[in-house]
Amino acid sequence: MTTTAEPTTTTGLTPALADLEAEAIEIIREVVAEFDRPALLFSGGKDSAVLLHLARKAVWPAPLPITLLHVDTGHNLPEVLSFRDQVVADGNLRIEVARVEEWIADGRLTERPDGTRNPLQTVPLLDTIAAQRFDALLGGARRDEDRARAKERIFSVRDAFGGWDPRRQRPELWNVYNGRHAPGEHTRVFPISNWTELDVWAYIEAEDVPLPDIYYAHERDVFLRDGMLLTPGPWGGPRDGEALERRTVRYRTVGDGSCTGAVESDAADVAAVIAEITVSRLTERGATRADDRLSEAAMEDRKREGYF
């Protein structure tokens, strides 16, 4: 993170972060201008909270002309869902929730033996895009998260299967974005592609972006599995031999409860979180996401199948 003493009109942001903000707003405005039915992927996680914050700035003082979309695995922490609902209510926003459980109940999806529902999100996502005729989906994915994501475009055109074909990506030139697509295709757009985890937190601090409490240190019952601290829930509690312990933890990412771990932390506010990440020797996905440990190309495989 670059620090600076330069006075700017954009109080509180470094020049680097002000540039990233301006770029994100420009990208969101391109989507609002060029697409008929845009949606914004909103999980209640920090990246989507920042994205929503930016989207509202991009069209201020007009109401947000974008529907929120959440693929609910049924394995979310309750704090995150209540945060999601609060944001929607406070902002007078529209949200479409695709519940993985409905797809399992009517047989369109089958529960995996390991109980993880992260890979099951893709089908409800694509079905909802088709049913709602969304032509652009804004997402909070960042290129620094994963090496497959490092190769993602800001405007990423997907076929009807949502698949990502890295060999057929469009060249992305200057800031002239090309989201044109054939009927049946849609475009995924990632306005905070160039942000790092630290940039996101610096922005949350400067702009006072509200987040679910689980991002900050709190006491919680957790058990250790595959080197990760999981919390009991509908995805299953501790198995035999896994001891439940009360620890002071926080989450660096939010996702399916069966594969998203907490980290031990005393960071109770934004400043403490930033201090913690600055000296952390682990990436956020490496520290907390079992789904990315499945293979060395786990994210690439899921993206090819239509995942974000």
Binding site: M1, D144, K151, P166, R167, N194, T196, E296
Partner: peptide, 26 residues
């Protein structure tokens, strides 16, 4: 090298974006 084909074939196919910072600049 981010993609499976790149690692397997020892080639680079596509632009990858990376982020680093020094105390002076990102």
């Amino acid at each position: 090298d981010g993609l499976r084909a790149e690692r397997e074939q020892g080639i680079t196919i596509d632009v990858a974006y990376r982020y680093f910072a020094t105390p002076r600049r990102s």
